[in-house]
Amino acid sequence: MNTDFLLETKDLRVEVSGIPILSGVDLTFSAGQVYAILGPNASGKSTLAKAIMGLPEYKISGGDILFNGKSILHKSITERARMGIAYAFQTPPRIPGVKLDDFICRVCPDYQCKDEDEMLMGDSCACKQILYDDFERLGIRNLANRELNDGFSGGESKRSELFQVLSMRPKIMFLDEPDSGLDYDSLKIVGRELKAIREKRDATLVIISHHRYVLEFLEVDKIYILQRGRLVYTGDMSDIPILEEKGYERFFAEIAG
């Protein structure tokens, strides 16, 4: 058994409501590396990440997912999350009545609420100040008191997802288009956060993206390109400008020919 990889998919087949979306995908992810998953719209990138996270609508119809060499197919989402797998949703669902700060205090021990006794009258939750400082750093201090994903703008939503995923201190995180819909300044903020993780090398980053900025800024180690539910190309940073210039269609035609 090869345990060199932190996470692997082997001939992974996934269907949604009986329709095959991934048709045999083999990928490997090593600890501390940075990966990009690229490919045209609807090629199966989000599906891959959701299947790895264990979302029940994404049915594994064949193959395997290994974490530290062991299959995790029978593990629940919760177990996978607690093992250190994280997924930042492309479009996170709204959770009415649950405030972002309360939620983060609850799921992340680093920010945990203080004892009830220490709370002042009328406070619903006393999160540590550091939470608000960290919100500030990601430019989402204004969301602290808002209901989870309720009317967050596109860019706010990306930063809130990134924040949540980072605060769980995962071993491997799948970031689904963390860079789309961001303005120039937000893009820099997100880039800087990710760079800090890369430099620490204690987590594996897997970035699904359609843009080169963050990928180049981070200097990704490896790129995987999916097309119609299959892995069609494995490369590195140097392919990114070529891809941008040619577009997927020509790029695929040339590698085929």
Partner: peptide, 26 residues
Amino acid sequence: GAEQLSYLMSRGLNEDEATSLIIRGF
């Protein structure tokens, strides 16, 4: 909602915790 449940579980809550959080919020 199944999607809400999956979302909260992906943040480390178990199914019961996630359900009860959704209910409390509701």
